[in-house]
Design a protein around this nucleic acid. Structure first.
Lengths: 199, 199
DNA sequence: ATATTAACTGAACCAGCGTTCAGATCAATG
DNA sequence: CATTGATCTGAACGCTGGTTCAGTTAATAT
């Protein structure tokens, strides 16, 4: 037997991506086999190659799609001009985006070294674009006097590490709702950036 | 030919650990082969098994040794009783420890999922011991009124993420010396913990 | 000088890897 | 109903993986 009843490109394609994502997140890219991915889709390994040229492309598409999505969505946001409001807005955006795709976020900074040099550069370029957004936002607040930080660059790294680190422990059914989480982190971020409470 | 001139157990043993560490840090545990490690030591793959039962043990020994080292050293520290001074002390300690072993730190939270379930638990147990130290330190400062934070648990995660994230970008020959780095991060940590400047 | 042993080689084992492809099957088209 | 093309199977390919081990060598002890 070969082709199964009801098999369809529009179903198998996304299923492969999804299965690869789940397995990469759980076991790591290098430890996952094409046969494992296929089994989860309910297909033989060879069928995967109708949808992707190779395993590497499977990883790259996931990471690249994620970064592109992140930048696109931020581009669509209406960012307040007031630095403190902008900070709140960014914190909420970043947390929301990351909490909604924990696996994607996880492999996005876990599997970077399994990318081809060329593919790595493409991701890295997008990533530094995002880092620059944060840095510029902080710089603006420092210049306006709304923020007070020891070092703008270090603070930008600290803020990103803090926010992204959330995926390591946050669970939808945990102690905090995502709304509370956002509120807490906005307060924390303001404190870290030295926002004067009286402003 | 077999045994090489000048070959010695006391040399080969550490060399294997060191080579494994470097390769795991660079390419990831799953992507590194025993033959690669052996080649870097200047030995055949089979010789490695005189020093370790298997590849898994090679990884576990590195991670476990690192955590044990971390806890032991913190235990030897003389921690000030004043909460703010204790915070500064912890920041300096954590940064110093992590900057001195960037590769070990890197694999310590990159390769956790490549551990056996049993081995994972052993590491996890030590890790939460360390997290508890930070949490307790923050709680103490909050109770004494030295710290003001939105949420002690979240703040402890944020502080650890911030400090540990340093290894992702810090270079010995970069813009900042390690002394300056410590100073900046102490200031940042105080701000994050809401230390009253007038206290 | 001889015997003993720790340290290592080199070759092999088998399982599993990513990938390819001829052929089978089903859905859609006319 | 016959044909076509997209979709998938099943088996194979060459290779490499971790691990084992009989045998070789060099250092040490006698």
């Amino acid at each position: 037997m070969a082709r199964k009843t009801g098999s369809h490109s529009e179903i198998t394609g996304p299923k492969i991506k999804q299965s690869a994502l789940e397995l990469f997140a759980r076991y790591g890219f290098a430890a996952v086999t094409m046969r494992q991915i296929a089994a989860r889709v309910g297909v033989q390994a060879g069928a995967i190659y109708n949808y992707t040229p190779d395993k590497q492309a499977l990883l790259f598409d996931l990471l690249h799609g994620n970064m592109a999505d992140l930048l696109t969505r931020w581009g669509e946001e209406q960012v307040p001009s007031n630095p403190v409001a902008a900070l709140d807005h960014f914190v909420a955006f970043h947390l929301d985006f990351h909490i909604q795709r924990p696996q994607l976020v996880f492999i996005s900074y876990m599997e970077l070294r399994n990318l081809t040099e060329e593919n790595f550069k493409a991701i890295e370029e997008k990533r530094s674009r995002y880092e620059k957004i944060v840095y510029d936002m902080i710089l603006k607040g420092v210049r306006s006097g709304d923020f007070q930080v020891p070092d703008a660059k270090i603070t930008s790294f600290a803020l990103l590490a803090t926010l992204t680190g959330v995926v390591n422990w946050f669970r939808e059914d945990g102690r905090l709702s995502s709304e509370e989480l956002t509120r807490q982190y906005c307060a924390l971020a303001r404190q870290t950036l030295g926002v004067n409470a009286l402003a």
